[in-house]
Design a protein around this nucleic acid. Sequence first.
DNA 1: CTGAGTAAGAAAACCGGTTTAGTATCTCTA
DNA 2: TAGAGATACTAAACCGGTTTTCTTACTCAG
Lengths: 348, 348
Amino acid sequence: MKDTKNGSKRPTIKDIARESGYSKTAVSFAFNDPKRISKKARDQILKTAEQLGYIPDPMARNFSLQRHLSIGFLLPQMVQYSLQNPYTLQVIAGIGSVCEKMGYTLTLIPPLHKSLSLAVRNAAVDGLITLGSQIDDDIITVMQTRLLPFVMIDGPYDEETSSVNIAEEEAAYHQMKTVLDHGHRSIAIIGLASATFAIGEVGKSVSARRMLGYNRALGEAGLTFSDVACLVSECTPDDGRQAAQKILALPSRPTCVVTMSDIVAISCILAFKEAGIRVPQEISVVGFDNIDEAITITPALTTIDQPAFEKGRLGAKTLFSIIDGTQQEPVHLLVEHRLLLRDSLSRI
Amino acid sequence: MKDTKNGSKRPTIKDIARESGYSKTAVSFAFNDPKRISKKARDQILKTAEQLGYIPDPMARNFSLQRHLSIGFLLPQMVQYSLQNPYTLQVIAGIGSVCEKMGYTLTLIPPLHKSLSLAVRNAAVDGLITLGSQIDDDIITVMQTRLLPFVMIDGPYDEETSSVNIAEEEAAYHQMKTVLDHGHRSIAIIGLASATFAIGEVGKSVSARRMLGYNRALGEAGLTFSDVACLVSECTPDDGRQAAQKILALPSRPTCVVTMSDIVAISCILAFKEAGIRVPQEISVVGFDNIDEAITITPALTTIDQPAFEKGRLGAKTLFSIIDGTQQEPVHLLVEHRLLLRDSLSRI
DNA sequence: CTGAGTAAGAAAACCGGTTTAGTATCTCTA
DNA sequence: TAGAGATACTAAACCGGTTTTCTTACTCAG
């Protein structure tokens, strides 16, 4: 690996061509299509490449071949939170397992200057997977304008866009109904930050779909949203704790807190315990996602289990089938959820 | 966003130039250096771009500017294991937090056709961070040949290569000495898969350095490696369980198992419990890393705590300072470790 | 012996941007 | 009123590969 003439920079295909006495074309063939060239030429070229320490520039190749060999995962929140959230990490692992099989890398894309759509504009990938409800029309427009294939996991529902989801409304109904069946009537709901409690228009976000389920369950018990305390929280430990504080500050304390994420639920449990309130004797908590900690925390968390790894895997498989042209029409995958009854929910 | 003439493909800078009546240069300036161009021209160009749905191709930009705006993380194992390993995930989170600040993406690079060095040849990144001891000379040669800046975390020690580590020998010494101080004399060691129990030559890998520490501690207690059972295991739950089975099959069961990773340690605890053996009453287990599960498992795991997130963060910071030229010479960072005494180690 | 077909390789176009070098016009100063 | 300098823009080179097109020499069948 000695220096080439061009300063101390890496040798290019041109250098190898010159030094070996062949053309650029020949060098390219030597590496990519050996049959197209004589053994003598190939040997000479590879020897020269070896001597000069030549490795074809991946970006130049990819650019020329109009591909990236990488798919992107749009981090739904700041890295600090996204990559500490076990649910998100399981989804990433699922995506990664497919990438590995396909010989692709997985590019984690954080917001750029706090902007997701800016990050999407600049993303050097063959396709994108999004997670969660932070995906607004702006972002979708950028992906469509770039003609970038994408799959949304837990995203806002859209006929024309491939997606992977659980039956959100059904799951939320099931979650709330279980709480009501346990006798609770004084309830607080902590929605995702993007949640809206206006049921009027048909909601497209995960939050909105879950709200429909909550509404139905409450209705069957003769309640409406005005009978429950409605809060929202980012899906972070800090925000979860703040929500817990707000609940403790309510004029009358609810007997059960229904959350849309285990992260928030667990933060609540911790906050309640620190405030000297016994869970579930004085207040019940139910979660959503079934992250690993849900079963190790005391009391073990009653929650909705959703197969995070599988969601990632299916999302990635779908994305690849769009990229390679196998899949032309949008697909909408539904994966199974189930309610796990554990200690954090008590009967009243 | 209507179609351009060139079929149904995305418009390029050339299309915008033609349609707007200006040159490619003008279009480029309109996007990147507005001051260089008249307001009239800029408005016309941006209007045309908007109408045609033009977004500059990130790869073409990056290629032209000879940069990637991404750094790579070389996954030490199959995705299935790497992205399920909490220690690795914490390191990734640390790296990601820096990438976010710098406006870079983080590319997770799985082995390509089982080959890490092949993956490194093809990686489209501005720099690489490696984790663990799987890094052989082959891989290092590729990175050096490509003139790709890189930082090794927990890697084989090398004067000329920037690195982030704990004082491995010291930590291992501390771990083993604690076991010996608790009275254990019948000990099994489960090393990392790459471990070698030959102490002769100065080891460069993490395993080798830890072995020196073990050797020293054992020596002070009047023991040598021939007095302990020496096994190796990949850092996966499956392999950890296999190692546990081998220990149970030994002619005389040791009173303590010393592992080089919590993943393995926890697998052992689970395997032992399933075999009806009480931990720590009948057998003690100590780990290494202090992953989250170490404290939630019963019995809580005695282990060496190392700051995974911080390692990732420092590794990334170092890499960026090499990339931007601030850092010329290799740096070798040492971060603090500490022993956490918990229930899985009993006194004998 | 000739013409078709093939093998080996070179030249040039291309991927889609950025940037350097250069041109024409306009403005200001001496 | 000529010359210097600034302004606004264009043409062409460049990043490092791949690929299409073309040339030349060789092979073989008729």
